[in-house]
Amino acid sequence: MLSEEELALLDAIRETGSLSRAAARLGKAPSTVSHAARQLETRFDALLFDRRRYRLQLTPAGLLLAEEASRLMLDMARMTQRVRQVASGWEDRLWIVSDEIIEFDLMMPVIHAFDALQSGVKLRLTHEILSGTWEALRDGRADLIIGATNEPPAIPGLRWFELGVMEWVFAVSPRHALAKLKGPLTREEITAHRAVVVADSSRSTPGRVYGLVGGQASLAVPSMRAKILAQRDGLGVGWLPRRRIASLLKRGALVEKATADPREPNVLYVAWRGDQEGRALQWWLEQLRQPRLARRLVQGADLFV
């Protein structure tokens, strides 16, 4: 490892092309700089400076040494910062996994506010679907999960609170056969038509499916937005978040249908492992406990205004 003075010497010679000018830049006598340069060559047993030309230059070996030393110095500075960061209670990294039903753009103001803390914590945000969200926390692929559905499973050290309740509406395209039926739709009437479902991202189980009647054909799609688009185009039927399709219902691009078996609202959860509670995690939990933010995340925005 080179000292800061040695690294500065290499940079000065590379940029000025002269021992005298390098000495002037460093505020040292030319003889001192010349002696330091020869000591470096002796230390590495390599020719680092090409003195044959009018302009002093680093040899390929000298250039490599300067570049690698600069990189190592930067890495050391970063490591020192990370050690101090963790020692002060901030995590090195926080991995947040949200259920796909939580829209990322609604979380962006929170990310901006977190960045303003200048904590140095690296954020990683990914999403899972249904069982995959709880599974990410259980398997160590998340430090914090947001918007998980269903009751919290048995996970060692699990801590959680309710984020809010999401309301659903059974909706079909106005061109779909179910749109013409009168009265609440029965189970039999719904089963006769294909359902559109968002595919569960669980890696270790078959996964869950909401709103699918036994024996009903299904079309699995990758996201809630895709599900809304598929139902709008008559590719199938199913339950959709009321707030997110408000404009489609108003314009008649989707039709709300009453059902004989209404769907109960879903409780969405925030969860984490109690044995990992650094300052970044605590900050995020405080934000998510704010009613205004929680309501915005759960209700979402009208996706098709």
Rank of each mutant, 00 (worst) to 15 (best):
A77M: 04
D11W: 03
T133G: 11
D45W: 01
G17M: 00
E67M: 05
D11V: 07
A87G: 14
V121W: 08
E91Q: 08
A8E: 15
R138L: 08
S31N: 14
L19S: 07
G132Y: 07
R43H: 05
V121D: 06
I102S: 02
L130N: 11
G62L: 12
L9Y: 06
V110I: 11
R53H: 02
L65C: 02
D11G: 00
R141S: 09
I102T: 06
M107I: 01
H127M: 11
L106K: 05
I129R: 07
L7K: 04
S70W: 02
L63D: 13
E135K: 04
M108S: 12
A24F: 09
R53G: 02
Q39N: 15
S18C: 01
P60V: 14
T32D: 09
W95I: 14
D11K: 11
D92E: 14
E68G: 00
I13M: 05
D45L: 12
L64V: 10
E41C: 02
W90Y: 13
L26D: 11
A116P: 12
V110S: 14
D115S: 09
T126E: 15
T126M: 06
Q85V: 01
L64S: 13
G27K: 15
R14D: 12
K28R: 15
R71D: 10
A8V: 02
I102V: 13
I101Q: 14
Q118K: 14
D75M: 07
L117F: 14
E103S: 13
D75Q: 07
A61H: 07
V86A: 08
L72E: 13
I13N: 07
R43S: 10
E135C: 05
T126F: 03
D115Q: 10
S88T: 14
A61W: 12
A77R: 15
A37D: 03
T133W: 02
E100N: 09
D75T: 00
K122W: 00
R53E: 06
H35V: 10
R93Q: 12
I111G: 00
D75V: 02
G62S: 08
R71I: 10
A8M: 09
F104S: 11
R43V: 01
E68V: 13
D75A: 01
K122C: 00
L117T: 11
L74E: 11
Q57H: 03
